[in-house]
Each structure stands twice: as C-alpha cells, then as structure tokens.
Design a protein around this nucleic acid. Sequence first.
DNA 1: GATGCGTGGTC
DNA 2: TGACCAAGCAT
Length: 370
Amino acid sequence: MQNHLVASAEPTHPLAEALLDWYDTSARTLPWRVSPAALKSGAVPDPYRVWLSEIMLQQTMVEAVKPFFARFTSLWPTIEALAAAEADDIMKAWAGLGYYSRARNLVACAKVVAELGAFPQTEAELRKLPGLGAYTAASVAAIAFGQPAAVVDGNVERVMARMLALPVPPAKAKNAIREAVAAMVPPVRPGDFAQAMMDLGATVCTPRRPACMFCPWREPCLARQRGEQDLYPVKAPKAEKPTRVGAAFVAVRRDGAILLRKRAGTGLLAGMAEVPNSDWNARQDGDTTERAAPFHARWREVGTAEHGFTHFGLTLKVYRTDGVETAKAPPGSWWSQAAEWEGEALPTVMRKAIRCAIPTAFPPKAKGKP
DNA sequence: GATGCGTGGTC
DNA sequence: TGACCAAGCAT
C-alpha cells in the first residue's frame, strides 16, 4: 500500500523536518526522480524506474548513469518489456557501466517481478529479489512505496559519521548508523527523507571540503561543532593492489572483422565479450607470449593496454594478426564486423586492447570543452 | 567480516 | 598523475 500522502500521528523528528525543508528547495533534478513538489501534488513514482535507477547507481556516479538510464527506459519502458528482452541485448546495453553481475541480476529480477505481476512493496520482500541488498531494498521501499525504511548508503554513512563524530570507519559501525537513521525516518515523506540524505551527502556533506555553511544540520553536527569535519569519516587502512600482466590477441579477418569470444558466466567480467587472451586474474599473471594465442599465425606485438580494476591493475601485451581465414575461427568464437563493435558486450579493458591494435576503433569521446 | 567485482571523475 | 573514490551485492 502506498502511503506517500498518508498522515500519521507520529511526530516528525526535528532533524528530519529541517532536512525535508532543505530538500524542498535544494533537491537535485534527476531523470528518475519525482520532485518533492510533484509528489505533494499527487504524482506517484514508477517502481520500475526507481528500481532500475537504484541498481544502476550502485557504486556508480549519477552522471555515468544518466545515458544508460535513458537508453534502458527507451528500449524497455516497463518491467514486462525488460523481462521479455534477450539477456544478451541487456548485457550489450549495460556494457561500459561496470559491475556486470548487476546486469545479470537485473534480468533475473525482471523475470521474477513480471511473474509476480508487480514489485513487492515491503523492504523484507524486496530484499529477496536478485540484486537487491539492504540498501536497494530499503531505498525502493521508501522511494517507490513510501515505506518508512532506513536507507543507508555511502552518502548516509558519511553524513552520519560527521553528525556523530564516529571514531571508527563507518563500515565498523553499520548497526549504530542504521539505528540512528531509523530513529529519524519521518512517518510522512520517508522517500523524500532518504533522497534528501543522499542529496545532502552528494552536494553538501561531500567527501572532501564539505560545504558546512549550507548544511541544514550544521548546528547539531558534532564534527562541525568541533571544527573537525575534514577528519571524518575515519578511513580504514587500504589493502595493497597488485599489478598483473597478460596477453591479448586481436585477429583481423580479410574483411576487417575481428575475432571475439564470450567469458565464463561467473567471476571477473562475467558473461561479457572479449578478444582471445591469456588466463590472467587478480591472483596470478597470465602468459605474455604468443604461446597463449588462440591459433598459430604471424602475430605482431603492437603495444600494451593498461587497465585498473577495483582490486588489481593489469598490463596486457597486445598482439595483432591480419588476413585470417574464416575457417581458422575456433569454436565458441565469432567474427565481429567493425560496424558491430560498439554494440558488443565489450568491457573497457577489452576496448582498450582492441584500440591498441586498431587505433580507429572506439575513439575516445570528445570532452565538453572546445 | 573480508573479499571480489568496473568504471570514470577528481585533484 | 596516480591514488582515491562513488546511490553495494554476493559469497
């Protein structure tokens, strides 16, 4: 039951009141968001758009999400349309956004919801869907269905770390943070409250140089009171990041097509496309010689492609061979014409390798400045 | 609870 | 310029 407009006998926490007032004038305008004014006028959020945006926004910046959200909602305007789509088409549309298991869970979740007929409306039921963890279940419950769920993401953790002057990294105080937020969630406008917290973190209580002068919570904030807002959140020691090496092989057919294959369904870059390459991973280097090539040919070294993953760096030695005969294509692979490359489910590291061998492929996007 | 999993922006 | 980081989830 949607209760966006249902009044309640419960009083609204003074801090929530102040935050909602700030949100009324300072909310960001986002393609997937129903503005506070529209919500008050009776507009109802589309759970599909809320869910899709929340999945895309996991560990991903707003500006990166916008074009993907537009593309997805154009191709698949409803959860039913998405559930009926080919999984490969969804993976292709996701290529470049990262964290590809999200796309696989997106497909699985769409099928479940289409089967159910609609999204479940409680946090606990949403939590059972593929790809929805504690954060996303709470955010969809609050934003799409007006449930008083405590929404805690990285922004909220940072805001609360400063509000409470938490002496430990936020990850070590998840329960305390969630309870502090739950105590503030207002009985009305819980969805706006959640979005207000995240907007506050994204635009005012920023990781570096927070704009405390514009913060609705500048008075109660413990870190601010002490003039120590730059000391929070306390950072956890960071793990060391190894650099791995490997080889990538760009085979060019006489007509200009290149050889691609599909990665395994689990693990790194799961289910995405790749050019043939040696078996590197986060724990182990791969062969950097042409012994790792998919077939015997005159391979030329054409350069290296560098890429940084979350947990390791990678330097690929790139080889190219030309004039390959179609008959030499190994099973499980396919030839992809230049006109189709942009549409393949190629992660960025593979695009870099291809660009290294074929400089005209995947030209860098022009920047905004002239 | 720690680890594996992308990418692009920022300073 | 390279290290850090941004609306987490699954195991």
